[in-house]
Simulated assay, not measured.
Amino acid sequence: MPGSPQFSLEQTNEFARTLKKLVKSKAYDKNFNVIISEVIWGLLNNPYPSNSRDEPLPRGTRISKQWTFHKLTIKIGKGASGQVRLIYLVNEIDRIVKPLWIYNHEQFKKRPPDKELRKNIEDSFEE
């Protein structure tokens, strides 16, 4: 079917929890959910946009080598405080995008601690 995404979405509990936290923060306007939905839809058609980059997996993370780890920067406002970051996994073989965590600069300057990321990644395969 034309217009169908090339990848499927596997949402995780942690992604839903962190998204809800950002929405409740009132740091962003009512269009925030629409913007994030458009970003996710875009990842299903192109999981490697120019505003994303490969990230090293947290030390000790045990997942299949067919998964790659990425961070996407989404500009919602001005400066670092106007950026939201989305951490996600991609499986090229099975054509899956798995959003793991969404956060802003105020919550984490670079990315969440490796220990928390590793737990999140491993938990996402048990859901």
Results as ranks from 00 to 15, higher is better:
39 V>N: 06
8 S>M: 13
74 I>N: 00
84 V>D: 02
36 I>G: 01
1 M>S: 15
87 I>Q: 08
71 K>E: 11
34 V>T: 10
81 S>T: 11
47 P>S: 10
37 S>T: 15
100 L>A: 08
53 R>L: 10
114 D>L: 02
4 S>T: 08
127 E>V: 08
87 I>H: 06
78 K>S: 14
68 T>N: 14
121 I>W: 01
50 S>K: 14
33 N>M: 14
125 F>C: 02
28 Y>E: 03
33 N>H: 09
29 D>A: 06
53 R>V: 08
71 K>I: 15
56 P>L: 15
15 F>P: 04
37 S>C: 11
38 E>F: 13
88 Y>I: 02
22 L>V: 00
85 R>P: 01
18 T>P: 00
34 V>M: 12
115 K>E: 13
45 N>V: 15
66 Q>I: 13
122 E>W: 00
70 H>V: 13
121 I>S: 02
78 K>L: 07
50 S>R: 08
96 I>W: 08
11 Q>W: 09
66 Q>N: 11
91 N>H: 07
112 P>C: 05
18 T>I: 01
72 L>E: 04
101 W>E: 12
104 N>L: 01
115 K>H: 06
39 V>M: 04
74 I>C: 01
104 N>Q: 04
91 N>Y: 03
14 E>Y: 07
69 F>S: 02
35 I>E: 10
118 R>L: 07
68 T>P: 08
119 K>H: 11
70 H>L: 07
48 Y>P: 05
56 P>A: 15
113 P>N: 04
122 E>F: 00
113 P>S: 02
19 L>E: 09
94 D>G: 09
123 D>Y: 05
93 I>V: 10
43 L>D: 01
103 Y>V: 01
118 R>Q: 15
102 I>G: 00
96 I>C: 09
47 P>A: 08
97 V>S: 06
115 K>S: 14
96 I>D: 07
119 K>V: 02
120 N>L: 04
14 E>Q: 05
93 I>M: 12
109 K>A: 14
118 R>M: 06
7 F>G: 05
57 L>Y: 07
122 E>N: 06
123 D>E: 15
30 K>W: 14
13 N>D: 14
63 I>R: 14
32 F>I: 05
47 P>R: 03
125 F>L: 04
63 I>C: 06
100 L>K: 02
119 K>T: 06
12 T>H: 00
115 K>D: 05
59 R>M: 10
12 T>Q: 01
93 I>Y: 12
109 K>E: 10
26 K>S: 08
61 T>P: 01
8 S>Q: 12
56 P>Y: 06
70 H>G: 05
53 R>K: 05
71 K>G: 03
102 I>T: 00
114 D>G: 10
83 Q>I: 12
4 S>Q: 14
58 P>M: 04
62 R>I: 12
